[in-house]
Design a protein around this nucleic acid. Structure first.
Lengths: 244, 244
DNA sequence: CGGCCGCTTGACCTACCTCAACTTATGTGG
DNA sequence: CCACATAAGTTGAGGTAGGTCAAGCGGCCG
């Protein structure tokens, strides 16, 4: 895996006047921590909000950068990854609409964040956000909840990597994506990430990931329309597989 | 793995009058989130603190129980674990002095907590603690930081389970325990947990864990005095191994 | 003393990794 | 719009780390 291209922070910041309109239309209102709070104190939050966009494959920030901003992902998908001194890298999560982004450890970002598809973000200067949190404790509650959820997710991930077999991992991953994207009733999912990224996240090789997709297709658990479009044919079956 | 014995919440609550004395002597003051805060508002915190003890192998709470309390671990070691519907269980962490305990998800504990050695805890009723947080935002900051650290830990765990080999896992585990227990200079560590618990946590089998310990001993990276006492003979070597 | 539990060691087996060839998408310049 | 280059994905063959099963060892407690 080559080093990440140094094209960080390429943000095309949108004109100020459109901010409110964008935020009110924002698909994630009511879901992310800013949504609930924004209803009550919309104007105060907007004062410190910057809308931003980022193209696919661009890096928003790198692990270890000073953590000046925090973000909410409004649309699109991003990956977050961490590096080992040895140079090895692992994707530790995929983020979708309404997810929080920008956890800091000792003042620096704890992971690298890269766009998988084109994305839209709300950006908050950390200092301003902290000031607002001091003023409105419910905002801090919201952020706290977001981090708690992230922690539970991460522990799920540990569970998975700790004991599941390749097939169980892929099945879990597909169901997780299904839940995240289309509510519970959708039957097809779009996977903007590559097989390589999925494999990395699941702790298996590209080849094993690919073989497993093929096997699931052959056994008619899923259908594949190109490699980024998956139809769930036998959801209950997948749930069985995922449990192990 | 048999189901956890239903001996939850067996707390021998200490007499009230000794609370302050205990807290002031508490080894973890200054480390845990209550420590820093306690210096300034010691009396307010103590009002809602209950000191408690728990014997080895006893369960403090189970995943899914209503999360009425939160805890700080003052002395001893605990394991936290999660269950899959299938009945499989995985240890997702070991907690030591100063660690926070009691993360809730939707009002219920997100994991099961069990004492490995005899432990001493500070217990706070969640509602009281939340009230105090509303009054003193810096207390919420402290808790927030504790959860953030837990998240980073958990992500480290994912990194490990995702790509490390058995030997790298054991080496990382030993170094992590070393750092946690004796500062950076200690040369021996006490591992109160069994090989089975270590293996579970590291996502390998008991046999592999045992073989790896033996191999590390044979190659003189470590020395073993009984199976719960480890001497670090070649720390740099271990660091190399751990990185992979 | 005897039973139990945690730990170790050995022999075998399999799921997954590695290496390699090939096919299919994606994108770029003429 | 096609030709070519490059990246992503699939498939096969073979090797290995670590899982599984089974037996033996040592300490601890009744």
């Amino acid at each position: 895996m080559k080093p990440v291209a140094p094209q960080c922070n390429i943000l095309s910041v949108l004109p100020t006047e459109s901010k409110r309109a964008l935020c009110e239309r924002c698909e994630v209102n009511g879901l992310s921590f800013c949504g609930a709070f924004g209803k009550a104190h919309s104007d105060r939050l907007q004062e410190i909000t910057t809308q931003a966009r980022l193209g696919a494959k661009q890096t928003l920030f790198m692990e270890g950068d000073p953590a000046e901003y925090i973000f909410t992902l409004a649309a699109g998908m991003m990956e977050i990854s961490r590096h080992k001194p040895s140079g090895r890298r692992q994707i530790i999560g995929f983020l979708g609409a309404a997810d929080f982004l920008g956890l800091a450890h000792a003042g620096c970002y704890a992971y690298t964040a890269t766009a998988i598809s084109d994305v839209a973000l709300c950006r908050f200067r950390r200092r301003s956000f902290e000031a607002l949190m001091n003023e409105f404790p419910e905002l801090e509650h919201g952020l706290f909840k977001a981090v708690s959820n992230e922690l539970v997710e991460s522990q799920n991930q540990s569970l998975m990597l700790g004991q599941k077999k390749a097939e169980e991992r892929v099945a879990s991953f597909l169901l997780w994506q299904l839940r995240k994207s289309g509510g519970d009733h959708a039957e097809s999912i779009d996977l903007p990430m590559t097989r390589g990224q999925i494999a990395d996240y699941l702790g298996i090789t590209i080849e094993t990931a690919s073989r497993t997709f093929t096997a699931l297709k052959e056994r008619e658990f899923i259908g594949l329309t190109g490699s980024h479009k998956v139809n769930i044919c036998n959801r209950d079956g997948l749930e069985m597989l995922a449990e192990g």
